[in-house]
Amino acid sequence: MILISLFFFGFLFSFVGSITPSMLNMSALKISLEKGKAATNKYALGVSLIIVPQVIIAVILTKYVSENPTILETLEKAGIVIFMALSYYFYRESKKGKIVVEGVKAKDVNPLLTGITLSVLNMFSIPFFSGTIITLDVFNLFSFEYIPVLFFTLGAVIGTYYILFLYGKFARIIQQKTGKLTKDINIILAILTGLVAVFSLIKQLF
Score class of each variant (00 low, 15 high):
I80D: 03
Y162T: 11
I56A: 10
Q204A: 11
N110C: 01
S119V: 10
A156W: 05
R92T: 08
F11C: 00
F151K: 09
F128R: 04
D108Y: 11
A197P: 13
R92D: 11
M1H: 12
F9P: 00
F7A: 05
L86R: 05
V196M: 15
L195Y: 12
I60L: 13
Y167L: 06
T153M: 02
F142Y: 14
Y89A: 04
L150Q: 04
T153A: 06
S18D: 00
L118H: 12
I50M: 13
L61K: 03
F142W: 01
F128E: 08
V59E: 00
I60S: 09
Y161M: 11
F13K: 02
S125G: 15
I80L: 08
A156C: 05
A28G: 14
F129L: 06
I99R: 10
I19N: 01
I187V: 02
N122P: 06
E102G: 04
A156Y: 02
I80P: 01
L205S: 07
K203G: 05
A78C: 14
K105T: 12
I99K: 07
S130F: 14
V120C: 07
A28M: 10
N122R: 05
N140R: 12
L12R: 00
Y43A: 02
F9L: 01
T178R: 10
Y91Q: 02
A58E: 09
I187C: 03
P69C: 11
G79D: 08
M123G: 10
Y167S: 02
I2V: 07
I202N: 01
I2M: 13
S94T: 03
L86Q: 02
T160I: 06
L201A: 14
L112V: 06
I158P: 04
I60K: 13
L45H: 00
T114I: 10
P21F: 09
T153I: 05
T193F: 05
F139Q: 08
F139W: 09
M84D: 01
I188N: 12
G179D: 06
K35I: 04
L141H: 12
I191T: 11
I185W: 07
F90L: 01
L33W: 07
K95Y: 06
V149M: 03
F144T: 03
I185F: 14
I147C: 04
L112T: 10
L141T: 05
K107R: 15
G36N: 00
N186P: 06
N25T: 06
I134N: 11
V196W: 15
E102A: 09
L45M: 11
V120R: 09
T117A: 13
K180M: 11
S5R: 10
I50T: 05
L33N: 10
R172D: 04
V100D: 08
E93T: 07
T117K: 09
F206G: 03
V149H: 00
L72T: 07
E93P: 04
T40I: 11
V196T: 15
L189N: 09
A156I: 06
I99G: 01
N122G: 05
G131D: 02
I99T: 15
G17Q: 07
L45C: 04
P148M: 02
V149Q: 11
V65Y: 12
N41M: 13
Y161E: 02
S130V: 10
L189T: 06
F152Q: 07
A190G: 11
I4S: 00
F151W: 14
P21A: 02
Y64R: 03
N186C: 05
V149L: 03
K177I: 03
